[in-house]
Every structure is written in C-alpha cells, then in structure tokens.
Design a protein around this nucleic acid. Structure first.
Length: 490
RNA sequence: CGGGGUGUAGCGCAGCCCGGUUAGCGCACCUGGUUUGGGACCAGGGGGUCGCAGGUUCGAAUCCUGCCACCCCGACCA
C-alpha cells in the first residue's frame, strides 16, 4: 500500500473514499448500503450535533423521540408524500423467524406475517403528525416546536459513504403554528440557522435558496435549502427547511381552536440536516495530505508531538509541556499529547495531518534549550518557531485565523466557479467545466427536465438574494425575471 | 434495475489464460536490537474455508454452472 493518498485532481471519487477510510472516519459496512461511522468520525458528528442542538434550543425548540416504524397506512395519507418516498422504503412484513427445515439456519416464519406492514421511517412527518393530532387542541398548544435526533432509512440504488447511505443519522425538526406567516418565518429562521452553522462552524459558504417544484420535498409547499460547492465543481445540498402549509395538518386532521373559537388547521414546517454534512465537510476543505478540519468542529484542535530519545527525555519534555497543555485546556482548546513511544515523529506528523488536526506543536530538545516550540498549521502547512511563553495566545489567534482563512479559501473557490451563462451553448460548456452556473429559466418543469436530461445539470435553487433581472430563458427564450442556480449535483 | 469491473492474510495486489509440491509479494502485525526535528533500519516470526454453493477431474485459486457482495458508469435520491 502506498502511503500517499490518491491525488484529488486525478480521481476525486477515489480521493474521497480513501480519505474517509484513512482518516478513520467511516467505512462501508457489510450491510447493504450502510456505513460504520468510526470513533474519530463520530467525534466530529458529535461536535456538529452539539452546536446544532444548541442553536435549536436557542430558537425555542425541544427534543423528543418518535417511533422508528411507521404503519403503512400513515404513509399513504399525504398523496405527494407517498409518491416521493414509496420507491425507497424498507418494509417490515414479519415479526418472527424460525429454524429452517434443514436446520442450517433461520427463515422467516410465514405464520408470523404482520397484518399491516411497518415502514422503517424514511422521514418522520407521518408518525409525528399523527401524534400531533393528539397534542394539539387549542391555539394555546401552539407553536409546537420539536426536534428529533434519529436515524432514517432510504433504500437508495447507489450509495456513497456520508453522501448517500441506506441508513443515515440526522435531525428533523417538526413544528406546528397557528398562522401561515408564523410557519413561513419558522422555515426561514431554520434556514438561517443552517446557513449560520455551515458558514461559521463548517467554514463552508452556502447559497440560500428555494427549490423548484420538481426538486421540492414530497408534501411541502416550499422547500428552502442551502447549497454548497465541492472542490470537484459539483453541488451538494447541505440542508433543507420545508414550509408544509396545511398539507400534513389536513392529511392527519390536526386542527386547533383559534381565539375566535373557530376550528382551523395548523400550519407546519419540517427541516433537517444529516450525516451528509460530514461528506460536505470533508470535501469542502481537504487536500492531498488529508482532512482539513475547521477548528470549531475539530475533535482535537491541537496535537503535541514530543521529539525525544529515550524514556527520560520524553518525561522531561512532557513535564515541561504539561503546564501549557493545562493552560490550553483552560482556554477551552482541546489538546492531544501524542506520547506514543513506538512511532517516530515524521509518522505522527503525517498521521495527524491526515486526520485534519488544525494545529500541531512539535517540541524537542532544541526547544527545551531555546524555550521555543514549533507551531504548524494544517491549512497552509506553514511552520513557525514561537516563544513558548506566548504559545497559548498564539494558538488562540491561530485557531481563529485558520477558521477564517479556510472559509475565505472556500468562498473564493466558489466565487471563481460561479459563472453566468447567456446562451444554451455557453451554458453547456460551463456546466461541463463544473461549478455553479447562473442562468435564466422560464419557470417550467418541462424546461428544467429537458436541461437535466441533456446536460445532467439541475436547478439547485432559486437564490434568495437573486437580483431582479429581465432576461430570456437559455433553453426556450421565454421571458424570465431572475437567474437561477444550476449545477451538477451529488 | 441496465452496462462494465472486481472478489486470494487486516489493507493493496500477483498467480488464473495454459489445472499439478507446502499459494506468493508489499504494507500492517508480533519478538529482539539499533533508531527518533517529516511516513526508520536489520534479523527472526505469526497469520489464508483463494467470496459462497454445486459440478468436471486422480488432482481446482486456476475450467464449467448458479448465487452473493463490493466498486465504477447510468436511472433514483438528502
């Protein structure tokens, strides 16, 4: 096995897969389409969870938990919703196994057939709304602001670690409101929460927008989304927030008594982000040396590699470094001292780079003598020798700088790869080159479909900040009032 | 589900076409020693139902049939 990971520019897919594996994030499971998230990968996910969960609480939401199984009849209550998910559901039909006739294993006991099949949730709108029916009677019960951290199953044809797996972890918020305006405000608020998380924690710039009809969530009136651009020029949907109107309220008969005594259907929203964000995080910043993690989400922010000969020198160095470790920890910085005596420093450097640790300190006899420490930053690979007494302040500033600087780098990349197309010919050329393409579109699903079939590009969203601009649809020439965002997507 | 590819030690592969000792190699692992400021070196060692099930044969990793899994390209999708 070669030690270097495959080059990003040569085979992006292979680079991604190898990176996931070698940085110890996850692996494909023997179970079809499922992944095993390994401890290091899960630590990053837990960081994400903690930040997001805090943001949800701050905006007034509470966590709850609903069943994994959904009776088939629930799923069929909202027509668009069934249609959207029917093709990719895992179904439980039996509740018992028995020894096979030849005694060589177990078989499904045909006697134990369920009267009504259970669907493993692909999303929880249906179970949750059937529960909300009992929770909501009066306007005093509203708004109902609930989030759930859970796993869901979607039987995808083709899977890829983190980006599309048969089972994935996510959070799904489900809220109910008295008015349309309040529900729309909630939908937009959660979109802002996601955008804030993506940009300020993941250091990943996103475009906020609305989905077109054909890309809309099954059962929603409007789907808002954040779209990010990966380093290979493909777009990744990083989060969605849906305004459900009264669709689910009507399907599940969820009404409330308004102040005026009238019975009204509630207004709903749902919103979610998943372990797909892990894929986004990996692809947004990493390089040929491995993962590059934003300090805000790195499970280990600073790693210390002591350079020593023999046990005594190690002890001497560790003793000397310990006060600085304590001080860093006190400042809320997570530090790992890599005191393994079986590996050489060069190996450790490479390993921690692979794992994306933002800052590495190397401390050896030379530093002991000079009262210095070598500080290396992961994002630029720059190294500098710092006066050891100033190291804590230096690192604090450095972590902030790395956070900012990888964001800026990603933003610059996105800006360089967001271009305008004025004609269909130009559009096809730009799409082929990769990146976001802003172009006029006549607003019809037919046109969108044709463009998709001919170029593989989809409308990622109609950006919320799109300027009014009269133009002609690149495909049909029909009038258009703003540009929409096209790209090939994951 | 269509087209292509792969399955041999934890990982990456050779061997298969043309059947024949004890199935190899690199990395990783274990032991001992020397090393340690960018992926160390020497010596020794352990580890295999050759994806699974049948078949052909005196003999199968190798040939035949069926199945399964994974990867890539499509269709589907967060």
């Amino acid at each position: 096995m070669s030690k270097a990971i495959p080059k990003r520019s040569q085979d992006y897919s292979l680079w991604y897969n190898e990176l996931v594996k070698r940085a110890d994030l996850a692996e494909n499971s023997a179970v079809r389409g499922c992944m095993v998230i390994k401890p290091y990968g899960f630590a990053i996910w837990e960081k994400m969870q903690a930040v997001l969960d805090g943001m949800f609480k701050e905006t007034g939401h509470s966590n709850a938990y609903f069943p994994l199984f959904i009776p088939k009849s629930y799923l069929s209550k909202e027509a668009d919703h069934v249609e959207g998910f029917a093709k990719e559901c895992a179904v439980v039909t039996h509740y018992r196994l028995k020894n096979s006739e030849d005694n060589k294993g177990v078989v499904v006991d045909p006697e134990a057939k369920l009267e009504e099949e259970l669907i493993v949730r692909p999303t929880s709108e249906t179970v949750i709304w059937s529960t909300y029916k009992n929770w909501i009677q009066s306007y005093r019960d509203l708004p109902l602001l609930v989030n759930q951290w859970a796993n869901v199953v979607r039987w995808e044809m083709r899977t890829r670690v983190f980006l599309r797996t048969a089972e994935f972890l996510w959070q799904e918020g489900h809220t109910a409101h008295t008015t349309q305006g309040e529900a729309i405000a909630e939908t937009k608020q959660m979109l802002e929460v996601y955008a804030n998380f993506a940009e300020n924690y993941m250091a990943m710039p996103v475009v906020k927008g609305v989905k077109t009809e054909s890309e809309r969530f099954a059962g929603a009136v409007d789907t808002y989304c954040i779209e990010a651009l990966m380093q290979d020029g493909k777009a990744l949907q990083a989060g969605t927030s849906h305004f459900l109107g009264q669709n689910f309220a009507k399907a599940f008969d969820v009404k409330f008594a308004a102040q005026n005594g009238e019975l009204e259907y509630v207004w709903g929203t749902s919103w979610g982000v998943s372990t797909r964000l892990m894929g986004a995080l990996i692809m947004a910043h990493s390089d040929d040396q491995g993962l590059v993690l934003p300090p805000m989400l790195a499970p280990i922010q600073v790693v210390i590699v002591p350079i020593f000969k023999g046990e005594e020198q190690l002890k001497e160095i560790v003793d000397h470094v310990q006060p600085y470790i304590d001080e860093l920890k006190k400042a809320g910085i997570s530090v790992k001292l890599d005191d393994r005596d079986t590996l050489r420093p060069g190996f450790k450097f490479a390993e921690w780079e692979l794992k994306g640790v933002p800052v590495r300190l190397a401390f050896g006899p030379r530093d002991l003598q000079n009262k210095t420490v070598e500080v290396a930053r992961r994002d630029t690979s720059e190294k500098q020798v710092v006066d050891v007494d100033k190291v804590v302040e230096h690192i604090k500033a450095l972590l902030e700088d790395i956070q900012q600087s990888i964001y800026k780098k990603a933003l610059q990349f996105r800006e360089e790869n967001t271009r305008k197309a004025e004609s269909y010919e130009e559009f096809k050329k730009l799409i082929e080159e990769g990146g976001f393409v802003l172009a006029h579109w006549d607003g019809t699903s037919e046109t969108e479909d044709k463009i998709k079939n001919e170029t593989k590009a989809t409308i990622r969203c109609i950006p919320l900040n799109a300027e009014k601009e009269e133009g002609k649809c690149i495909y049909t020439g029909n009038p258009s009032s703003c540009r929409v965002l096209f790209a090939k997507a994951y």
